[in-house]
Each structure stands twice: as C-alpha cells, then as structure tokens.
C-alpha cells in the first residue's frame, strides 16, 4: 500500500487512539505517545508494526496518540488511516490483508 498523502483516523477520546499517517522517503518512522506507555508501549509498537507490515506499507511516517486503546482499535485506526492516505477505493479484502 503506497502512502500518497497525509490522513488521520481515530479520536483522542478514552479507549481510542488517533493515528496520523503521511508519506516518507525511506522505511517506517513510528512515533508513539500513550497514557499507558510504560505498561504497554512495547506492545502498541508491535501491533502497529505488524499491521503496517500486513498492509505492505513500506514507507511512512506514523504518529499514534493513544488513550488506552485495545489492540483491535489500534489495528482498526491504522488500517483506516492507511486506506485514507492511499486513496484506496476498492473492496477491502476482510480477512485478507485486513486481518
């Protein structure tokens, strides 16, 4: 998935996270700010990187502001932001690349 423009998904409400994705020249640059960074920072990064890898996002700057989101919410917000940033308009292959 090629990131061609800046896009945002999610909110700063409790149990949610706000994900911003924008084009980058080389690799993934992930910045994380979380209310539970000491306890779950590593896990959130892991989920984010796995999700980006599955979506085949190779180059992007990704900023996550987390307010205590579950793994499923982090995945959902990253996928939505990536789809918006890539101007994706086809049918989502639920269970395929979105898993």
């Amino acid at each position: 998935m090629k990131i061609s423009k800046l896009a945002v998904a999610g909110t700063l409400e409790s149990s949610d996270c706000m994900v911003t994705i924008e084009p980058a020249k080389k690799g993934i640059d992930l910045e994380l700010d979380s209310v539970v960074i000491r306890q779950y920072g590593r896990r959130i990064r892991e989920v984010a990187m796995e999700t980006l890898d599955r979506l085949e996002v190779k180059n992007a700057r990704v900023t996550i502001v987390d307010k205590g989101a579950l793994d499923c919410t982090i995945k959902a917000r990253i996928e939505c932001a990536a789809a918006r940033a890539s101007e994706f308009e086809g049918r989502v292959s639920w269970g395929g690349t979105i898993r």
């Binding site: 579950l70 499923c72 919410t73 995945k75 959902a76 917000r77 939505c80 789809a83 918006r84």
Partner: peptide, 15 residues
C-alpha cells in the same frame, strides 16, 4: 463510515 467498519471488523474478530 469507513472507520466504523474497520472498528467493527476487528472488534468482532478479537473481543
């Protein structure tokens, strides 16, 4: 609407 679908899919899968 798109964001709600992604949330729904992963919630159904994981919760």
């Amino acid at each position: 609407k798109d964001a709600a679908r992604y949330s729904l899919y992963h919630a159904l899968q994981e919760i």
